[in-house]
């Protein structure tokens, strides 16, 4: 035996593999519990801090969580005869909110296509500027819509236009990144073929890349439209048009307009659910094909 010449090989796990395994399990449990304790300590202290920094305390407020909704529902129930009328009264502003989302998705999506193609390796018009365009998209994406909107409301005044521009800017950054990721995986052969017969850059993109990426891009755009509906409802809250603005007015008024609050809540809720389902259905068809 060769082993005897070198002496017995030291057993890596004295006590057999079982002891080694158990030691590993014990070590992992120890790490796990230390992490868990750390986590809960962080959480408890953070929660305590949040509680202390808040205007009202958690425990005093806890029983009030349902007070406000209950109050709202009670008043709305008392005035339930008004609800259908109010419902129709707020449909135009809901449509305005949806329109803001639609226009900003279209404008932002258009900008995103250009930005994405310019910043995708292998497709870019000016390969040296890829860095510039991808940083530009990062910047557009990093600023929350509401911050852009706050600046634009100051600059342009209230109304739907600042909201539209703010969402479009954010959308172009967010969609641009997703578009570019899809385009990166596109097959380059059609592009090379088009280049070899003398197609210009625009033609190469339109006939070589777009047909490959269109279903995925459309799917992302639909998802973004869904997100933008929520965003445009929120932006109304800081002072630019749509259903959010009505909601803010009704909530600030307080008692006496709670029937409006309920009407707005329910119309907003229904719209979000409707578009959620619609876009989910369409996206499934786009990515998996019409006939399953």
């Amino acid at each position: 035996m060769v082993d005897t010449a070198f002496g017995p090989t030291p057993d890596p796990h004295p006590g057999g593999p079982q002891a080694g395994y158990l030691a590993m399990v014990r070590r992992r449990r120890l790490y796990g519990s230390v992490l868990a304790i750390l986590f809960f300590a962080l959480m408890a202290s953070g929660f305590h801090l949040a509680d202390a920094r808040n205007a009202g305390g958690f425990w005093q407020g806890l029983h009030q969580v349902f007070d406000f909704p209950a109050e709202v529902v009670r008043e709305a129930w008392a005035k339930r005869a008004n609800l259908p009328g109010l419902f129709f009264k707020f449909v135009p502003s809901m449509i305005e909110t949806i329109n803001i989302a639609a226009v900003s998705t279209l404008l932002g999506g258009g900008a995103a296509i250009v930005l994405a193609l310019l910043s995708t390796r292998g497709l870019a018009r000016w390969p040296r500027l890829i860095w510039v365009f991808s940083r530009l998209m990062d910047g557009l994406r990093a600023v929350p819509e509401i911050v852009i909107a706050l600046v634009l409301i100051f600059v342009l005044g209230g109304g739907p236009v600042p909201a539209m521009i703010a969402i479009a800017l954010h959308t172009s950054g967010a969609l641009g990144k997703l578009f570019s990721e899809v385009a990166e995986n596109a097959d380059l052969k059609p592009v090379e073929g088009l280049a070899s017969v003398g197609a210009r850059w625009g033609q190469r993109m339109a006939f070589g890349v777009l047909p490959q990426v269109a279903p995925n891009w459309l799917s992302y755009t639909l998802l973004r439209f869904e997100i933008n509906i929520r965003a445009s409802a929120i932006l109304g809250f800081v002072g630019s048009g749509g259903i959010g603005y009505d909601l803010k007015l009704a909530m600030q008024w307080g008692i006496g307009k709670y029937d409006q609050v309920i009407a707005i809540f329910s119309i907003l809720f229904l719209t979000i659910v409707l578009f959620d389902q619609l876009s989910g259905h369409l996206r499934e068809r786009l990515t998996k094909g019409a006939h399953k």
Partner: peptide, 11 residues
Amino acid sequence: VFIRAFGLGPL
């Protein structure tokens, strides 16, 4: 809704 219940703040 939570701001109504707990007041302004991070909670």
